[in-house]
Amino acid sequence: MSAISTFNLCKQYKFVKALNDVNMTVNKGDIYGLIGRNGAGKTTLMRIICGLTSQTSGSFSLLGETEENRIIDSRAKMSAIIESPALYKNFTARENLQIMALLKGIDIKSSKIDELIELSGISKLSLKAKVKNFSLGMCQRLALVMAFLNNPEILILDEPVNGLDPEGIKEIRELLKQLNQEGGVTILISSHILSELSHLATTYGIIDKGLLIEEVSAKNLEEKMKQSLNIVLSSKEDMQKAAEILSQQFGGIDCKIEGDTIAVKGENLDEKASKINMALSKAEIMIKGMSVNSTDLEQYFLDKTREDR
């Protein structure tokens, strides 16, 4: 069952189409990384799911519910941080947690609040300070802890590591992984730090100009990011022969001679590498070196969105 599904979701602002027929599926237990440029539609999509704005057309389901009133009920099992952390700035961290606990109908004990404050990494010295005096990083941490308060089934996080130092980013990543793996929490997360997402996400959605241009699992993406298998032969004279053998024996690959290298492009190159090795050895072609050339998530995203333009 999907945790969140959208069906031809559209959002039209006065002059801009922020979302255009978006069909997204976030399965239960996924960490779904939403990637896109500024203004691509990531936040709008999250805001619609959270009920902060309404769609112009299309629909969505939340934990299997599609009817508006039932979606509102389902939101009790969800927590979200959209854009900036929504904290009560004239109150302390403890009071903020109490306020949220009351809103979520949780009978929270003082010891649990202490535990959560410790988890947030807010120093004891800051406990008496009002949140308005906190740094952005501290606000972000407190907002995250407030989001965990109701043990949500779904977490929606829009740029959650904004303002955090590298140590804080790592801590949050570990925490989110732990929540996902041990608690089964489904996470929909957007971040500009794509390298950060690549440590976390199990599925990616690439969104550009309001269009969801690709939805891909982390495993498949890893394969797709392996751009080419580069083969260097001992003898340059064998290059043409080797390219012909590979093209004849392996379907779905594309061989190109680039200088002293044969660049093989196609799917499942890791699996094919040993077979290619064997085929060339059989034809008595000596291989000097073989490597899989991969791209990173950032480059893949840039290539993908450029393709689409």
């Binding site: 959270c50 009133n69 939101r75 009790a76 979200a80 700035k89 809103l103």
Partner: peptide, 14 residues
């Protein structure tokens, strides 16, 4: 102004 209205709207409240 402080955007805390988001909290009430997001959590199970019509």
């Amino acid at each position: 102004q402080s955007s805390t209205i988001k909290n009430t709207v997001m959590y199970n409240q019509s």
